[in-house]
Design a protein around this nucleic acid. Structure first.
Length: 313
RNA sequence: GGUGCCAUAGCCAAGUGGUAAGGCAAAGGUCUGCAACACCUCUAUCACCAGUUCGAAUCUGGUUGGCACCU
């Protein structure tokens, strides 16, 4: 029997946090956050991080484990999440992966192997400089020679990914396109129940706007001001988070506060849209259209428990 | 009542006789070490009617609507 793993995913502001706590209490689960921003301490309001009292005693993992100055990326996430899952299972509990970062969730559910790649050795920097000086087509042309398949799939303007493909080749001597092909064959090692919370688009957008307004009321600006004071710069991974980069723009005098809030709302809506695109192509997801349950958490939970029973979790 | 100006996609907006730029929004998509990132695709027959012309969003007349000023 495969090990059980439950995923509670969905776009931002879809109700993942509250539902995952209810679920954990119902089945004796522990929660692993699949979120690229909630790992950072001192980033509470903007990342919509769960508050300790909201956890209701349910153990949460991968929250508040790094400082905003620290880098964070999928390889780290994968390692930490795998370890957390193992520990939870050893305790006889059920792991619940909850979050909105589809890429991270996929790494775990499909057990993608990142070990082949190495640490930063400066090639990324060098390539970035080249791209800036010679234009985006330059690196893409090089990629065409060393890894034609990857070049075919990547648009020349997508400099970031072109750089990664080249970096992979220079560091490992292998083609990333081949590596990706191998990884795509992988099947999930888990008895997986992958739920995605959804709702009509207009309602989703309405909630996003409301949440941003709430964040502002709760003092998002002050939170970012503190971070800035303590030395956080916009180049850091943490400062690329929604809410943080917009407030930094305002604090740096690049736009008015109203404008910053407007852009934050807009970009958060765009983000939710991309999240949905991701989940849509992910196979084996079980959609939970919350409007069909009258947005009633009890009814949604009941439905989820039924599905879990069918899967033998 | 008179005179003048204006009327291009959901919004902003180029085009002033040769077959509708661009931006934003919306929608769809890609993604295997920064993923709350980065990137891609995509939406009109020019208020309406009638003329002039081989050809009109572009010229003429009228209609409607808006704005400004005058009485």
């Amino acid at each position: 029997m495969k090990k059980p793993l439950i995923v509670i995913a969905g776009p931002t502001a879809s109700g993942k946090t509250a539902l995952s706590v209810s679920l954990a209490r119902a089945i004796g689960g522990e929660i692993i956050s699949a979120d690229s921003m909630q790992v950072y301490r001192r980033m509470n309001i903007g990342s919509a991080k769960i508050r300790p009292e909201e956890m209701c005693g349910v153990p949460h993992h991968l929250i508040d484990i790094l400082d905003p100055e620290d880098p964070f990326h999928i390889v780290m996430f994968k390692e930490l999440a795998d370890r957390a899952i193992e520990e939870i299972l050893e305790r006889g509990h059920i792991p619940i992966l909850a979050g909105g970062t589809g890429f991270y969730i996929q790494a775990v559910t499909r057990d993608i192997d990142f070990s082949e790649a190495e640490q930063d050795d400066g090639t990324r920097e060098r390539l970035a400089v080249l791209a800036r000086e010679k234009g985006p087509g330059y690196l893409h042309d090089i990629l065409k020679k060393v890894d034609p398949a990857a070049a075919e799939e990547l648009h020349p303007n997508n400099v970031k990914r072109v750089i990664r493909a080249l970096e992979f080749f220079y560091q490992t001597g292998n083609r990333i396109s081949e590596h990706n092909e191998e990884q795509k064959m992988r099947e999930t090692p888990y008895n997986l129940a992958y739920f995605v919370l959804s709702m009509p688009r207009e309602e989703q957008y309405r909630r996003i706007d409301a949440r941003v307004d709430l964040m502002m009321e709760q003092g998002l600006l002050g939170e970012v001001e503190e971070l800035k004071k303590s030395g956080c710069k916009r180049g850091m991974t943490s400062m690329q988070g929604l809410g943080y980069k917009e407030m930094l723009d305002y604090l740096d005098g690049l736009c008015s506060l109203d404008e910053a809030v407007r852009i934050l709302k807009r970009d958060t809506r765009h983000f939710a849209k991309r999240q949905l695109t991701w989940f849509r192509r992910e196979k084996d997801v079980i959609w939970i259209p919350q409007e069909s349950f009258g947005y009633d958490r009890e009814r949604i939970l009941e439905h989820i428990l039924t599905v879990l029973r069918q899967k033998g979790i």
